[in-house]
């Protein structure tokens, strides 16, 4: 589907043409200045050629008006580029609330994907066309970067935290996935395909996949297996706090600070529980660093996120900001 000598990438996501538009704008401004300056340089150099050995140039020292002109005009143009780019970036960085969620974990040198329904795949990513997809990215070892050129999006996978990216595919087909952050020997082999399908094909694909239980189900199993449940009970008899409704809530910490429990907070609570101790609890929770893989962690988080108070008066704000702080 790619020609053998493409000069411009396919645009297959809702954001792609917006990115291209900004690209063409900056390209136009740049070309204008590049041509203008080059032409003037060459013209002057020819027009004012030295005619005899002792000739010197005219005694011109400068002009405040011109200096102002060529400070202000580039400044204004640069500001346009900034605001336009910033606006676009915010749209790229903020997933819509109704996006479906897929977990992707980078590991030297593969991409492990987990669909909410439990289907897993490696180095491929199947998504339905026309639906916003939010990807929660983790890394098991070093930095990686999930990059889909046809969608014009990329995001680093950072060990020790979770990051997010999102897109809405607009054209069926298959497109490159690249690892764009250098991660060692097989960095250039850490590639794959996104396969964008019609929604019903996608459903069929999901149904055909070997599901090993949904992320939430797996998370629930792990919650028992890892004995989380011995401390985190549904009533206040456990040694740890009740986890129902914790996601999205504001947690009071031992040292007086408050944090909003987003995915990164849940992650940290499990991997590095002493970092943020909940008020009125002892720091007795063991770390699960090394015991829980990044994928299992995502399942646990998916499970904890479903533990909602029966009839919440106000729904907790879901969308976590891109990246951490």
């Amino acid at each position: 589907m790619q020609s053998t000598f493409p000069l411009f990438p396919q645009a297959a996501s809702s954001i792609a043409s917006d990115v291209d538009l900004l690209y063409f704008f900056i390209l136009a401004v740049s070309s204008f200045f590049a041509v203008l300056v080059s032409a003037l340089v060459v013209y002057f150099a020819l027009r004012y050629r030295r005619t005899h050995a002792d000739e010197v140039g005219h005694d011109i020292h400068g002009s405040i008006a011109l200096e102002l002109l060529w400070t202000v005009i580039p400044f204004i143009l640069a500001m346009v580029m900034f605001f336009w780019g910033a606006d676009l970036y915010f749209r790229i960085a903020r997933p819509p609330a109704d996006a479906m969620e897929i977990f992707v974990v980078g590991k030297q040198w593969m991409w492990k994907v987990q669909h909410p329904e439990g289907v897993r795949e490696i180095n491929e990513l199947h998504v339905p066309v026309g639906r916003p997809v939010r990807i929660t990215l983790g890394s098991e070892d070093v930095l990686h970067d999930y990059y889909i050129p046809a969608f014009r999006v990329k995001m680093d996978a950072v060990p020790g935290k979770l990051t997010t990216m999102w897109f809405t595919a607009t054209k069926t087909g298959s497109y490159h996935i690249f690892c764009a952050e250098y991660c060692g020997t097989q960095h250039s082999g850490m590639v794959g395909q996104v396969i964008v399908m019609e929604p019903n094909d996608y459903e069929a694909w999901l149904a055909g996949g070997r599901s090993t239980g949904t992320a939430v189900e797996n998370g629930e199993k792990l919650f028992t297996q890892l004995a989380c449940i011995t401390c985190h009970k549904t009533d206040s008899s456990g040694r740890g706090p009740i986890l129902t409704g914790v996601f999205g809530s504001t947690v009071d910490l031992q040292d007086g600070r408050q944090v909003v429990a987003d995915e990164n907070y849940l992650r940290e609570s499990i991997m590095n529980p002493q970092a943020k101790v909940v008020r009125n609890y002892q720091p007795i929770m063991p770390t699960f660093q090394g015991t829980v893989s990044e994928e299992n962690l995502l399942q646990l988080i998916a499970y904890i996120k479903t533990l909602k108070v029966a009839a919440p008066a106000t729904a907790p704000a879901a969308a976590a900001p891109r990246g951490g702080q």
Binding site: D18, V19, L22, Y23, I26, L27, V29, S30, F33, A34, A78, M81, F82, W84, G85, A86, D87, L88, Y89, R91, I92, D145, Y147, P149, R152, V153, K154, A180, E181, Y182
Partner: peptide
Amino acid sequence: IGGLTGLFLGSMGLDVHLHD
């Protein structure tokens, strides 16, 4: 050309695509 293409990279939304 080098400097002007720095502007492409400095514009955040575009750099998401161009980075690395």
